[in-house]
Amino acid sequence: MNEVKTEKLGEAWPSVEVRYTHETTQVMAAEVIEKIPPLLTEFRCAYCERVFGSLSELQAHYTSEHPDAVVPRIITLHINSRYCQVLVEPHWTLKRTLQYRLGLTGTKEMCDKGVCGSCTVIMDGRPILSCTTLAVECEGKDIQTIEGIAAELKNKPLIDAYCKWDAMQCGYCTPGFLVTAKALLDKFPEPTEEQIKEALSGNICSCGTYPRHITAIMEASEKMRQGA
């Protein structure tokens, strides 16, 4: 499997002081996006880890060595305003692709069944569940992940409000909520409480932070409109 280097082994010591603020996380999110290569330069066999210089070489390898295996293919995704080539197998979900191919780990997996909303991304302006969306279906679509939202300064009021109001406890489901909230605010800049509840009803928080999201989104909505 051709995994993206999201961590460099053994280089993390000693830990350094990192203050997580809007400014630092905005930069970090932008860096994660920046790291995604636009073009594939190596083609790795999923079974024996051999690396080839082109897709045709990889396909030839599959034909000779793994004739029964599903041959991966190249797709081009448009994610967070950048085009990138990705090598995927046809059954790969967008969620799996984001984590294993692109290092976009802000999209979380909780239920793996399209129930909990933790894996939500925005596709062509609509929140969709990346755990039940095949990556090969996403070509030609405009996809925004939590990293893309975090990297844009205009979303600061929403992120600030989430942090100010503790719209999170353990925080695992939080990016999914925030992505859904962003899609809601794009559609309804001044949402009612009922619209917020309806929009976020597909996002599950085991920690029970639900009322916090309403408060945060209401406040963000007002600030975003004032700043617009």
Partner: peptide
Amino acid sequence: PGKLSYALATGI
């Protein structure tokens, strides 16, 4: 705000 809240909210 929590000291790690921005990391959680932004998926970092």
